[in-house]
Design a protein around this nucleic acid. Structure first.
Lengths: 388, 388
DNA sequence: AGCAATGCTGAAAACGATTACAGTTCCCTT
DNA sequence: AAGGGAACTGTAATCGTTTTCAGCATTGCT
């Protein structure tokens, strides 16, 4: 159903073959003639250039720049004129070296593309920016090793602190960084450490609420799709799932647990594996929406209707979940605010507020009940997304 | 249909009220007792600490660190031991100050949340990282002024160069930066300047192909939803739309053009405005998928079936477009590769390759024909997304 | 043995800002 | 007019690296 356009190469794997890419996806557009007179274009002037131009010392220029110390109106004007004239901007590296801080924080995520992370990042960026901080984005590509690699940023003082979103590093490793004096903060994960601020949701409770919503509707055999085996949030959701079963007086069937690696394809495969085990079930709780999308596809292949034959609930409130048919029930978190809050806390700590009264914040999530988990669902109509 | 959970505050506006956020979304979790023995935790040691420990000069340590110059095996071992012992890491600011470069590039986007940008960013980050560069993300929040603000990053040497994705700055402004000696690159926009590398798609051609696809199917009155008035890509898509009309011998009706600001709600409003003008039409080409989603909602409200009553085509291949019912026809671009390619080119230029043979790269896009633009559409079934 | 070449090492000068300290000017009292 | 204090300004140290230059020791060669 997809008509091929003019070009064949599209992204599918990581980028390893730069020349390849160039050769494949581009068509040269007028190789511009070279220009030679750019050597002498000098963008920067230093503070001493300004001092010279204004016939004052560098100290005075610095005072004008930072509004520190007293400077006579006459001198100030001359300096400001010189600054404008030379379009001078103080060198950030020099400033950082002297101040021993960079006004930058790093943000480590496992995949920028996942909208869950993107929204948190937005919250972090906006807040950080308002507080005059910049953020360096680190895509760990789901690899724990890359996470560790990126930690060097705080160790070599490229950044003043690092925010990790649902990291793979262990509690012990994280604690070690903090105790060495590196400022780190956590989002979507809690840790009991006096130096590490964190913002997280009650995964257990949320999962329990979601699964209870299913049992209340009469489901007695419910499957669970976990994410990565080493992901705390996935584990906590499993815990909530088990709690809900217990609460409903239902038995825990280990065969009804499968691992889907948080990805759509993973969810798709895992669901098929579940179905083939010979332990029938009528509802499935997926540790995130991506896997739920995979379930949709698998159900479609097996001729199962959602929610009549199979109820589905995910987590994350992925953008797609609201638009797909049937709309997907899911657990939503205030992602933007979570990012904003942690950024504010971490920067506060960087500012020397070492003894904040609290470092650990649990924020609420909410279950969005949509069509995929309700028995009576209006279907066969163009979906009109609700406006949450 | 959305059940309210425990908490009410969810992100809707920019973040301005930090204390507010805290008070609203959090519940305190065990205010940890303060710790006092952290003053003496010293994370960093300097190169001279290492030198002292190894009983050599700082110059020698530097040589060991960078593999420059000759160092005797015996000394090298001693230095390496000292480095390990002190877990020394060279200070990035000092390095940058000395080297006059930061190994960092800035990336300015108008909204991180838009998946189009996120995917480009991923391409940039992965490539930059492979080349030992870091990226600073700048969310301009659709404001031209913020774009300019972020340009200070390259002027004060926080970053070595800046990549702008479909910026609002004018060609003249961009050229001015480049001519002052600041390294900038463009994605999703072309500029005819010898110093500015850019990677872009043929918006005109792609739009023309999309609209022609509609006219070929017999549509004679087609509307166009533009994005921002000042966005080049939106303008180019309008151009393609007009070309396609001309090609099909159809009249251009100015009343059938509306501005939707690239957002879902904007598209929704714009579509309603179009419908109320009294100039009937049977198909609409939206300058991006977000607006197309708004059109879906508006159509649903007006009882219009897609594609029977109204054919719709968008641009961007938003994640949702594949999952919504009916699936949305759209124009796809190799976003990841575009980011990767430009990052590689810009960094190449930073490396001193001032006279690259080409700086301007046009990459192909492809029209994905899905259900929303086809007359005979299978509907009323659970959608099974195709696997593009 | 004398000398050049080589290998290794250290001292010191950058890089571009901030800031403590000291020195100068100016104005106001007495 | 002298003295004191405030206001202003400059000198120089400092942040932590890299790198040039020179010095010393060792080696190899004649």
């Amino acid at each position: 159903m997809e008509k091929q356009g003019r070009l064949s190469l599209f992204r599918s794997e990581p980028f390893f073959f730069i020349q390849n890419v160039i050769d494949n996806i581009t068509s040269q557009v007028g190789a511009r003639e070279n220009v030679n007179e750019l050597k002498d274009i000098k963008a920067d002037s230093t503070i001493s250039d300004v001092a010279k131009a204004a016939r004052v010392s560098v100290a005075t220029v610095s005072r004008v720049l930072n509004g520190s110390g007293a400077v006579s109106a006459k001198t100030r004007l001359r300096v400001e004129e010189a600054i404008r004239e030379l379009s001078f901007m103080p060198n950030a590296s020099a400033k950082s070296l002297r101040a021993l801080r960079t006004m930058t924080i790093g943000v480590i995520v496992s995949d920028i593309l996942v909208s869950y992370y993107a929204e948190i990042i937005k919250g972090i960026e906006n807040t950080a920016n308002a507080l005059h901080y910049k953020i360096i984005i680190c895509d760990a590509q789901n690899q724990k090793e890359k996470e560790s690699d990126y930690m060097t940023l705080v160790m070599n003082r490229t950044v003043d602190g690092i925010i990790l979103i649902t990291p793979k590093l262990t509690d012990a490793e994280l604690a070690a960084y903090a105790e060495k004096g590196y400022a780190i903060g956590l989002i979507g994960r809690s840790i009991d450490h006096p130096l590490i601020p964190c913002v997280y949701t009650d995964n257990v409770g949320a999962a329990q609420e979601a699964v209870s919503h299913l049992t209340i509707q009469g489901h007695e055999r419910l499957a669970f799709l976990s994410g990565f085996a080493d992901a705390t949030d996935s584990y906590e959701r499993l815990e909530g799932y088990m709690k809900a079963l217990r609460l409903a007086g239902l038995p825990f069937v280990p065969e009804l647990i499968e691992n889907g690696g948080f990805s759509e394809n993973g969810g798709y495969d895992a669901f098929h594996r579940l179905m083939d085990k010979g332990h029938p079930f009528t509802a499935v709780f997926a540790a995130n929406d991506e896997m739920a999308l995979g379930i949709y596809r698998a159900c479609s292949e097996r001729g199962l209707s959602i929610p009549e034959d199979m109820a589905v609930i995910g987590v994350d409130n992925n953008r797609v979940s609201k638009y797909i048919t049937p709309t997907l029930s899911t657990v939503d978190q205030p992602k933007y605010s979570m990012g904003a809050l942690l950024a504010e806390k971490l920067i506060d700590q960087l500012g020397g507020n070492q003894y904040a009264d609290r470092r650990s914040f649990q924020v609420g999530s909410k279950l969005l009940v949509r069509q995929s988990s309700l028995f009576e669902v209006k279907r066969n109509r163009l979906q009109q997304p609700s406006s949450d």
